[in-house]
């Protein structure tokens, strides 16, 4: 009988899932985030293409390309440290190393947000705001969307760090955080190339 082929033996319960639930959930969230940033990137390109070269910032403001290159380096470094932290956390003897590396990641992320905030204050002082024109609007929309992601991720990482100090952090949660942070780090060079070199 054809249907009888499709009969497995009863598997034992309690098998480990292939990927931790928290990581799957984060990956699904990242799917949405990727599409969100794709939409912003296409909106940027569509709006810019229709201005036929008149894409100058108001009042001749120049975006801080070099300072942001330094910021980019900070963010990329934090991607490496979070990866090392999650790798070390798998083993009991790596716990203190993981704590240190997570703290470094938080610090680097906070520095990134801080420097970017400082740049924004300067830009606003030069008269570039969301209302000053389409250049400022798209700049703050795209860079701001990314900045909010960094800020939120840094706050969550600080929370996870506290849990880690208390010894209550599961490996799955740290891996989920790592996946999200790697997304935030990975999308930044694309946005940097797109916005600052437009």
């Amino acid at each position: 009988m054809a249907t009888a082929i499709n009969v497995p033996g009863a598997l034992p319960r309690g098998r480990q899932p292939l990927i931790p639930s928290a990581v799957i959930a984060t990956l699904v969230l990242i799917l949405t985030e990727v599409m969100y940033f794709c939409a912003l990137i296409s909106a940027f390109n569509v709006i810019r293409a229709q201005l036929f070269g008149n894409w100058a910032p108001p009042g001749d403001v120049r975006l801080p390309v070099a300072a942001t290159a330094f910021n980019t380096a900070l963010l990329l470094a934090s991607g490496v440290t979070v990866w090392l932290s999650a790798r070390a956390y798998k083993y009991p003897e790596g716990r203190t190393k993981a704590q240190l590396l997570l703290l470094v990641t938080i610090t680097l992320g906070a520095c990134f947000v801080g420097f970017q905030g400082y740049e924004w204050v300067k830009l606003v002082q030069y008269g570039m705001t969301m209302r000053s024109g389409i250049f400022g609007a798209t700049f703050f929309m795209i860079i701001g969307s990314h900045g909010i992601h960094v800020l939120a991720a840094v706050l969550v990482m600080a929370f996870l760090y506290m849990r880690m100090l208390q010894g209550r952090l599961s490996l799955g949660a740290l891996q989920a955080m790592q996946v999200f942070w790697l997304f935030v780090v990975g999308v930044w060079p694309i946005l940097y190339r797109l916005v600052y070199f437009a």
């Binding site: 949405t32 794709c38 912003l40 709006i47 929309m141």
Partner: peptide, 25 residues
């Protein structure tokens, strides 16, 4: 839904900015 809602969220944020703080997207 997950894969399609991102662009609408982006558009909705831009439209909300157009309505409330007066951007010109």
């Amino acid at each position: 839904f997950m894969a399609s809602v991102g662009p609408l969220i982006a558009g909705a944020v831009m439209l909300l900015f157009d309505q409330t703080i007066g951007t010109g997207f």
